[in-house]
Simulated scan of single mutants.
Amino acid sequence: MDDDIVIEVTEAEFHAAVRTSLARLGLTYAELEDQARRRDFSTAQAHSLWTSVGGAVNTDLLENPVKYDDAILITEDGTVITVNLPANPEHFAEFAAAILRCTTVEHLDLTPGVSLWFDEDGRESWPYNPVIDALRNLYGSTDSTHGPVLITGYGERIEPLSQATAGRLLREINDTDA
Rank of each mutant, 00 (worst) to 15 (best):
S162E: 08
S144Q: 09
P86D: 05
G122C: 03
C102V: 05
G122A: 10
I81S: 04
N88I: 13
I5H: 05
P130A: 07
I7A: 09
I151E: 02
S52T: 14
P160T: 07
S52C: 12
I81A: 02
P89K: 05
I99H: 03
T165N: 04
S162N: 07
R38L: 15
A56M: 13
R37T: 14
E8W: 11
G54Y: 03
D119L: 05
A87S: 12
G122N: 08
P86H: 06
F41C: 08
L85F: 03
D3V: 15
R168K: 15
F41D: 08
S48A: 15
E120W: 11
P89F: 07
R171I: 04
G78S: 08
Q163Y: 06
F41Y: 13
G113E: 04
S144D: 11
V57M: 02
Y29S: 01
T176Y: 02
I132F: 12
P89R: 08
D69C: 14
D119I: 03
S21Y: 00
L25K: 00
E156R: 11
A97S: 11
Y139S: 09
E8M: 13
V114C: 02
A166G: 13
V114W: 02
M1S: 15
S144K: 04
P89E: 08
S48R: 15
E13I: 07
L62V: 03
G167P: 06
D40M: 11
I5F: 10
L150G: 01
P127Y: 00
H15S: 00
E90V: 15
A98W: 10
V9E: 12
Q35L: 07
S162C: 10
Y68H: 15
N58H: 05
A44C: 03
V18Y: 00
R136N: 12
P148Y: 00
L116R: 01
N88V: 14
A36Y: 05
Y128E: 04
T28S: 13
L169F: 04
P65M: 06
G78N: 05
Q45S: 14
A93R: 14
G54A: 02
A93D: 15
T145E: 01
P148E: 05
I99A: 00
N129C: 04
D133I: 06
R157K: 10
T79D: 07
L61Y: 00
S48D: 14
V9H: 10
T111N: 05
H146Y: 15
S21F: 00
R19T: 00
D70A: 11
